[in-house]
Simulated scan of single mutants.
Amino acid sequence: MFRQTFRMKAILLFVATLAFVLSPLWSPSFKGYDPSMFPNPVDKPAVQPAGWAFSIWSLIYLWLVIHAAWGLFKRAEVSGWDQPRWPLFLSLALGASWLVVATSQPWLATLQIWIMWAAAVWAMARAPRTLEPALLSWPISLYAGWLTAASAVGTGVVLIGYNIGSETVVTLLMLSLVAAISLTLILWLRPPRGYALGVIWALIGVIAANWGHDVIMLPACIYALALLVLTFWQPRSPRHGYSH
């Protein structure tokens, strides 16, 4: 009975992963929110990373597909592999429609990506750290790390677009939010380093996009350095979640 349930969840996760990865093929072209959608159009909001930073999606897509395929065809009935499946399924199933929503309803897309983020963190917390980490916990942690930054960035773009705070103030608040969430999760869950690397990559993108604008660039540098130090100089045994 349990084995049949495990396999069903593995199939659902595999389908959701493919739908998520292939969603750009049937969604309108999306390169960030269209400034014309907002009362206060800003072409390149300071909170948004440089365009090249979004190339990380190629790695995330590939790694998630490998994770789902290996989990279905090789580890469908393994208990440890089953633990993160439901929350990851929820995140990716929502993600399959995110691009469509984002092109027409920024506020709804903001809510949706935060739910995706929460489900991804839930999956990361449930994924065993020591069971084939390169295939199981690392793909989920990198995805959760990038979503931590992407959720705050998307929120910042919407707030700026609707004139809810100045661009600089909103950007600093969102960067501080990213740092607070990620540092808390690293201290609490001690996730795989892929989580911090996903966040750091986004912060590097923000630094590059605001090069020379010290009031934004310097806090982003400090946050990225703090994440780097905390991630690589702390004990690696998880405090919470599943360790086996």
Rank of each mutant, 00 (worst) to 15 (best):
M8N: 12
F14L: 15
L18P: 05
L25M: 14
W26P: 08
S29V: 14
N40T: 14
A46Y: 04
A46S: 12
I56N: 00
I56F: 00
W57R: 07
W57I: 06
I60L: 06
Y61G: 04
Y61Q: 07
V65A: 13
I66W: 04
I66T: 05
H67S: 12
W70G: 04
G71R: 02
L72P: 08
L72I: 06
K74Y: 05
A76M: 09
V78S: 10
Q83W: 11
W86L: 15
L92V: 02
A93V: 04
W98D: 07
A102I: 12
S104A: 15
Q105P: 03
A109L: 08
T110E: 10
L111G: 14
Q112G: 07
Q112W: 07
W114L: 14
W114M: 13
M116I: 15
A118F: 14
A120Y: 04
A125L: 12
A127S: 15
R129G: 08
E132P: 02
L136P: 01
S137P: 03
I140K: 10
S141Y: 00
L142K: 04
L142Y: 00
A144Y: 00
W146Q: 04
T148A: 13
V153N: 03
V153H: 01
G156T: 11
V158F: 05
G161E: 03
N163R: 14
I164Y: 13
G165N: 10
E167A: 14
E167Q: 15
T168K: 12
V169A: 15
V170C: 06
V170A: 05
T171Q: 07
A180E: 05
S182F: 01
T184F: 15
I186W: 01
L187I: 10
L187A: 15
L187K: 14
W188D: 09
L189H: 07
R193F: 09
G194T: 10
G198A: 08
V199C: 07
I200H: 01
W201H: 12
I204Q: 02
G212D: 08
H213A: 11
D214N: 12
I216M: 03
P219M: 03
A220E: 02
I222G: 04
Y223H: 13
A224E: 01
L225E: 03
L228P: 01
V229Q: 06
F232Q: 07
F232V: 10
F232G: 05
F232A: 06
W233C: 11
R236P: 00
S237W: 10
Y242M: 11
S243N: 15
H244R: 15
H244M: 12
